[in-house]
């Protein structure tokens, strides 16, 4: 829509972001170009950005227009940019894309292959686990990574018995493990309820919860 509008007005459209020339910021020749080992994002191979400064978050949002992953602080303090890398939750704002060569990234857009809602996404709707919706994709991706950590038996700061091999799915365990995802609207109760309901239903977690 805008492109047409600009063309009609005879405005010079700038280069598309992926083609931005990096004059002056050109990295030395020693740097691997990454063409052989691209990043996989939601199943698609994507070249490593030429500008080393590009974060995984900005690669997603500005270059691939996958804006479901949110920028809340760009400093690792809010969790809105959480994505899954090889199944593990990380903060894409603190991740230089170049460092993730060869890795497989899943963002909120890629949670389910067919566009169906993930059970956790449905639970967020049922439990009103959001208000403005800005922290929501990060909460959801984080919770999926968190559930995997729970299944694996990773302890948390509120785990009483560090030696335990299975982790209980208690409210405080979920709250502590999700504390890296800020929500300012105050949807915490709904978020925790949605996560608890979703993962209490999965067999592995139900086992762990026993």
């Amino acid at each position: 829509m805008l492109v047409g509008g600009l063309a009609r007005l005879g405005l010079r459209a700038g280069p598309s972001p992926r083609d931005v020339p990096q004059n002056g910021a050109t990295p030395p020749a020693a740097v691997p170009k990454g063409v052989d080992m691209p990043i996989t994002i939601n199943g698609q191979a994507v070249p490593i950005p030429v500008d080393v400064r590009t974060s995984l978050l900005d690669l997603l949002r500005e270059q691939l227009h996958l804006s479901g992953t949110k920028k809340g602080c760009n400093q690792g303090a809010c969790g809105a940019c959480t994505v899954l890398v090889d199944g593990e939750r990380i903060l894409s704002c603190l991740a230089l894309a170049a460092q993730y060569e060869g890795r497989s990234v899943v963002s909120i857009e890629g949670l389910t292959p067919d566009g169906e809602l993930h059970p956790l996404q449905r639970a967020f709707i049922n439990h009103d686990g959001y208000q403005c919706g800005y922290c929501t994709p990060g909460q959801i991706c984080s919770a999926i990574g968190m559930a995997d950590e729970l299944r694996r038996g990773v302890p948390s700061a509120v785990t009483a018995d560090l030696a335990a091999t299975t982790m209980a799915l208690t409210g405080d365990e979920l709250r502590e493990r999700m504390s890296g995802n800020l929500c300012r609207c105050g949807a915490h109760n709904g978020i925790v309820a949605a996560i608890a309901e979703t993962f209490a239903r999965t067999p592995a977690m139900a086992e762990a919860a026993e």
């Binding site: 805008l2 492109v3 600009l6 405005l11 010079r12 459209a13 700038g14 598309s16 972001p17 949002r61 227009h65 996958l66 804006s67 479901g68 992953t69 949110k70 920028k71 963002s107 909120i108 857009e109 809602l117 996404q121 449905r122 967020f124 709707i125 959001y130 919706g133 800005y134 929501t136 994709p137 959801i140």
Partner: peptide, 20 residues
């Protein structure tokens, strides 16, 4: 809700524009 949980709700800093 469905748009928000899918990350499809588009916020002000996410609007694409040619020549941005």
């Amino acid at each position: 809700g469905p748009r928000k949980v899918r990350g499809e709700a588009r916020f002000a800093a996410e609007v694409p524009a040619a020549g941005l």
